[in-house]
Design a protein around this nucleic acid. Structure first.
Lengths: 345, 345
DNA sequence: CTGAAAGCGCTTACAG
DNA sequence: CTGAAAGCGCTTACAG
């Protein structure tokens, strides 16, 4: 009963610093210093006795600071904006979980919006977030020819990139070139000599780096890889299905292995291969990228390059923290690991 | 150049109402009324001429209102909190896209946090959002025995439910009972008489409603369904795999069809069936739920009940809008549709 | 160690 | 139609 009525009142009019101050007969500024200053300032802000009483009453009345009020005064909202192509892309959803976790640890609140990989939409969402007065931004949807990034830099907006990189700006990404190399080594070792790549969207560094990592290493191993063997595609299942359909239609010799730069494209690729009467893992090898949870659980388990998605999100927040504190912020490239499964064993 | 320097200054010190007022020689309150009032008030707030000049200058200088400041004054933050089990669950990610869209249309900014379906975490995240002074909350992770909901209601916190329902609180959900019935009708029509259900988490209304919709209809059709034929499970691929493994281990007679209340559980189920030497679609039928984009693209396309996930998210926002405006808010149940594919054709 | 005051940007009842 | 003032909750330089 007591409990409920405290809560009730706390909803109707939240407890403020002024409430605490008048209850204790001290000045609001003293309460503020005790409760919200750095440890050092707080210590010399009040007698040990006063500080103790302030803290105790704050706890008892359920005082919780009003972020809009302090933000208005300090000019810092402790809000952090994130823009991703789409949250329904599992890869970005997991990265954002990392962002949210790491932001919370720094007492920041994270926001997220979808741009659908449309640069006009990216710009619109950015302005909405700036209008909300976010302290900084994380972009998971940058294109290799993104005009917004140089512009934001000129305007002095603090931001970092995640997932995809762009020369000249700090980013937290997977080492996608290495990821492509790992797949090339694996398929070469398995004896494949005729391969195709479902390459993803050409505007995304992930797609370009994974593809070039694969192709360059393949050639270094002495392999040959023709024009029609690299097909750009969307990142989803439909994209993978269409890309493989195109490969099957145009290839003079059928490949014995397909590298798709994304697990969902790989699943689409598997579907198209099956429709063509091929059994994945026996007639043809398939390797994906990201090692999303579904890869291991597919009817035919999918080999995939595991990228540390959660850690990439966390690293992006750390990078943004440095930018906000005017510390040097070097790009972070996290190492992937290849998981070999039945689809290419 | 002009452009850049305007932006530059707008970053260093954003344009305020006071800036506009002094530039035009009018009082800040006039500017505020012209720019931010309801159409009616705004019209009688200044001469047409003054209003025009205010609006023009605002546009020219790139004025953007400071939400923290107006929120502090009005007590409304236009912030909307959403709590989901996990954003990396595609179903919730899509629902949240609907929330974000609909919130933006109402000039609200949406936040989202993960509770990992842990009721302690749900409580913690709720308090963080309330500390941020959100105007209202949307819960996508409610359990059938959730102590937090009655408590929040007592405290007068405005909130609605989405995805899962709970008696006594307004919710936007799929008509899951109907969804289960559709699957029962379909499998019965296909001639199946011995079926099993991968039933999901017993604390989630989605799982319980889909399962009971199926079982009740099955019995109404004259079917028999034994104890061991309904196995509760996690919602992910691993959960589906384990549930089917248990069914295969304990069943006296093998079922000829499996209904999994979630596509990812269905994918896990397909994997387990294949490991057992069964070909899905030929030896045994499988039906999932939600019709996530991957279902249609699987190597063996998966029959699934399509639930309107985006619309559920949008409906939740509409429901919350009504709650915030003290309008009556009846729960919304959106109709699902069965998509039959190769896995059960 | 503590207080008094000013001000962040906005809104809104009160006047005229 | 427009102005002047007060105040939302907080922080922080300035005094003492």
């Amino acid at each position: 009963m007591q409990e409920a009525s405290v809560n009730e009142s706390s909803r109707r009019r939240p407890v403020t610093i002024k409430d605490l101050a008048s209850e204790l007969g001290v000045h609001p500024s003293t309460v503020s210093r005790v409760l919200h200053s750095e440890a050092e300032v707080a210590r010399s802000a009040a007698s040990a006795e006063t500080a103790r009483k302030v803290r105790e009453l704050a706890r008892k009345l359920g005082y919780s600071p009003h972020p809009q009020a302090s933000g208005l005064r300090t000019g810092r909202t402790h809000l952090l904006g994130t823009i991703v192509p789409r949250l329904s892309d599992l890869v970005l959803a997991i990265m954002y979980e990392g962002v949210e976790e790491a932001a919370a640890e720094l007492k920041y609140s994270a926001f997220v919006m979808n741009s659908r990989d449309d640069m006009e939409e990216q710009r619109r969402k950015t302005e909405i977030m700036l209008a909300r007065r976010v302290d900084g931004l994380i972009f998971g949807d940058v294109h290799l020819d993104c005009p917004l990034m140089p512009e934001l830099a000129r305007r002095g907006v603090p931001f970092v990139l995640m997932n995809r990189r762009l020369r000249g700006f700090p980013s937290a990404t997977c080492d996608d070139v290495l990821g492509g190399q790992l797949v090339a080594d694996h398929l070469w070792d398995q004896g494949h000599r005729n391969v195709a790549v479902v390459a993803g969207e050409p505007y995304a560094s992930t797609a370009v780096d994974r593809t070039s990592g694969f192709v360059d290493r393949w050639r270094a191993l002495g392999g040959d890889i023709g024009q029609g063997a690299v097909v750009w595609s969307r990142f989803d299942t439909t994209g993978g299905r269409e890309a493989v359909a195109a490969i099957l239609r145009t290839a003079r010799v059928l490949p014995t292995a397909v590298f798709a730069v994304n697990d969902f494209a790989a699943i689409g690729a598997m579907g198209a291969l099956r429709s063509h009467g091929l059994t994945v893992g026996r007639d043809i090898a398939v390797v994906g990228f990201n090692d999303t949870p579904v890869a291991a659980q597919l009817p035919i388990p999918l080999s995939s390059v595991r990228s540390p998605m959660l850690e990439i999100g966390r690293a992006a927040v750390e990078l943004l923290r440095r930018v906000l504190n005017h510390e040097p912020a070097e790009s972070i490239r996290l190492k992937p690991v290849l998981q070999v499964r039945e689809s290419s064993a």
